[in-house]
């Protein structure tokens, strides 16, 4: 008897509370930048693709929904295709954690509903944005030792000029 009265009391008490549910889509929630929504591929500060097709996101993905193929141009690796099957994605963010170049990032956008599953298969054109995303400054190739157009050997951060093999000096 007391239990029933208590439940009724608590229920009526909530009548006076402020509503938690908001009317979506009229009211949109403010999501933090680190919210794990739609995945994008970002570009480095020079405007070039950050993704170096290292395959770490694909191997970290617990549902195996990322697939890509490495291609190469002038020493720079990039994905020939980059495909995410969002109908499988669980938005765990492991791919973002695995990415050594900050290329793959999760965004606060979650509005991805589709009527047919094939529409949830995103290719590189759908994923690649024109900006740097959450990490404005990082450029992998400025740190890496490989030679790319505009950065010769020894011109990366913390690098000495290439060794002169004709010198016998220590």
């Amino acid at each position: 008897m007391f239990g029933i009265l208590r439940t009724l009391w608590l229920t009526f008490l909530h009548l006076g509370h402020r509503r938690v549910t908001v009317g979506y889509p009229e009211t949109r929630p403010a999501l933090p930048p680190r919210y794990r929504g739609r995945i994008i591929l970002s570009r480095d500060p020079d405007g070039l693709e950050r993704c170096v097709a290292c395959n770490l996101c694909a191997v970290a993905c617990p549902v195996d929904c990322i697939s890509l193929q490495k291609a190469e141009q002038d020493g720079r690796w990039y994905p020939d295709y980059f495909r995410i099957n969002f109908s499988r994605c669980i938005f765990c963010g492991f791919c973002e954690e695995a990415c050594p170049t900050y290329a793959i990032q999760l965004t606060p956008d979650f509005e991805m509903s589709e009527y047919v599953r094939p529409n949830l298969v995103y290719e590189k054109e759908d994923l690649l944005i024109s900006g740097t995303g959450k990490y404005p400054d990082y450029s992998f190739y400025r740190v890496s030792g490989v030679k790319i157009p505009g950065k010769d050997k020894g011109e990366a951060e913390r690098e000495q000029p290439p060794v002169d093999l004709h010198s016998l000096l220590p």
Binding site: C61, V63, D64, C65, S67, R83, I84, P118, V121, E123
Partner: peptide, 15 residues
């Protein structure tokens, strides 16, 4: 055992 992309590699043809 850690082969990747099984659910995406053919997704452009069929999901």
């Amino acid at each position: 055992p850690r082969i990747s992309g099984r659910t995406a590699v053919r997704a452009n043809i069929s999901v």
